[in-house]
Amino acid sequence: MKHSLLLTALLVLFWLALSGHYVAFTLILGVLSIALVMWLNRKMHISDEKVMPPLLLLRLPRYWAWLLLEIIKSNIHVAIKIWQPRLDIQPQFKKIPSPWKRDVTRVVHANSITLTPGTVTVMVDKDTLLVHSLTDETMQALESPEMKEQLEKLERFQ
């Protein structure tokens, strides 16, 4: 129930951002469109509270702020590596633990790694991720306790 309300609210916001024409006819079409999408969503089990835990949304902005900082840091790191006249990289594969109970946390973990320059998730297993890393440093950043802490907080908030 909570989830349906949340999804509807997001869809309404999306429609209002897209439309820009707030006359009766398009607004009615908007209501009908959102109703159709919600109906399909229910019928085909597309999105539910497992996909979009309402509580997670409260926590996510703070996680994103932290992630953004990490992204900026490693961006600078990788940019320097690219401009260095002699390539100084240590490409490597490694399995790192990802012992999360919920799929959402694992997905956030995997995608955060990919979003951070210098590291890409290659494989997602039950409780490990296979990661390819550009340098030793970017790999160390992934294994730092800070990342674990952030994700633990995220998992608790569902």
Binding site: L11, F14, L36, I46, V51
Partner: peptide
């Protein structure tokens, strides 16, 4: 699953 509702609504828009 997260994206599909938005893709569908965008199509309707």
């Amino acid at each position: 699953r997260l994206m599909i509702p938005f893709i569908l609504l965008f199509a309707l828009y």
